[in-house]
Design a binder for these strands. Structure first.
Length: 301
DNA sequence: ATAGGTCAAGCGAGG
DNA sequence: CCTCGCTTGACCTAT
């Protein structure tokens, strides 16, 4: 059964002045500019988290744009290089405290350029840097539990799933820390040739990390029923943890994989006997979540 | 003040 | 070969 509903990264209600992904063009990069942006991003993360608490939203994805260029291969800066780093760290810890005090589950989702299994070594190195940056964020939240996850995709098939899975597992084992390994989840893909939940299980990924079922992606890439996918994905989550799924719908007039502003259909509530939390991926963000709750009269606390 | 082009990035599908 | 779509539009320049 569905437990909490969540939304991702940005808040429409608070408007476009409250942002956690202020950035700048690479050509304009200076440490002073980025310091100012990161400080503002961290302050607004508090604002959004407090809004979540006030509105009883208990599942939220933190955006990946908090620290512009921090995972860039040119290594423009490290966190400690920021003059305001103590204040920024404190802000992020406050956001984490609000989440912890209000039972808000937090996750993050490094982007499609995170390709840990790439045959290209530079791509792997960049992917590791991205994962490290998200891990730093996860630690800075100072959460009292290990519930925070860094969720991403395999990144590609590269013509051979078995070899790619071996590279993934090898890179996972050798290039990442225990903390990072422990907090990674992998999500199924939205193209038929790519990674279904059953593929992730069959090729051993599900033995190494937990799997997140994306219901929308499953439509485009499946070698198993949705219920079987849920069974397989949830099996990778210890029974004292609540598994997560993603839910979204197609936008009209675009590729079917594109996300709609709002969601209209009922989210499957019978995927599993276990409780699960649902990350709603809709362009209208928390407005889509709230509209869904009103429409279906759901009282997800 | 706003419109429109631009942006750091990997992969695969489709035209 | 180009565009789209993904985690997410915001930045920047010219008007």
């Amino acid at each position: 059964m569905i437990r909490h509903l969540g939304y991702a990264c940005k808040n429409m209600t608070l408007g476009n002045k409250v942002l956690t992904d202020r950035t700048l063009r690479e050509a304009r990069f200076t440490l002073e500019r980025v310091d100012d942006l990161v400080l503002k991003n961290s302050q607004d993360l508090i604002t959004i988290m407090q809004w979540n608490a006030d509105n009883e939203i208990k599942f939220f994805r933190i955006g990946s744009g908090l620290f512009p260029f921090m995972d860039h291969p040119k290594q423009y800066y490290k966190f400690e290089d920021l003059k305001n780093w103590p204040l920024i760290a404190a802000n992020i810890a406050v956001a984490g405290k609000i989440a912890a005090d209000n039972g808000i589950r937090l996750s993050c989702h490094p982007g499609p350029y995170t390709c840990l299994a790439s045959p290209d070594n530079l791509t792997v190195i960049k992917s590791v840097k991205t994962i490290e940056m998200h891990a730093m964020l996860g630690k800075m939240l100072c959460l009292p539990t290990d519930d925070f996850v860094i969720n991403f995709h395999m990144g590609g098939v590269y013509g051979d799933k078995r070899e790619t899975a071996k590279r993934f597992i090898n890179n996972l084992n050798t290039l990442l820390t225990d903390w990072e390994r422990k907090h990674i989840t992998i999500e199924n893909d939205d193209k038929a040739s790519m990674w279904s939940i059953s593929d992730l299980v069959e090729y051993g990924i599900g033995n190494k990390v937990r799997l997140v079922l994306d219901v929308h992606h499953h439509r485009f890439c499946n070698r198993e029923s949705l219920h079987d996918a849920a069974d397989m994905a949830f099996e990778t989550w210890p029974t004292d943890q609540v598994p997560k799924i993603h839910y979204s719908e197609s936008a009209e007039g675009k590729k079917p994989q594109a996300h709609s502003d709002y969601i209209f259909d009922p989210i499957p509530n019978d995927l599993h006997s276990r409780d699960y939390d649902v990350m709603i991926e809709a362009k209208a963000k928390e407005l889509a979540l709230q509209a869904y709750q009103r429409k279906y009269q759901l009282l997800h606390s």
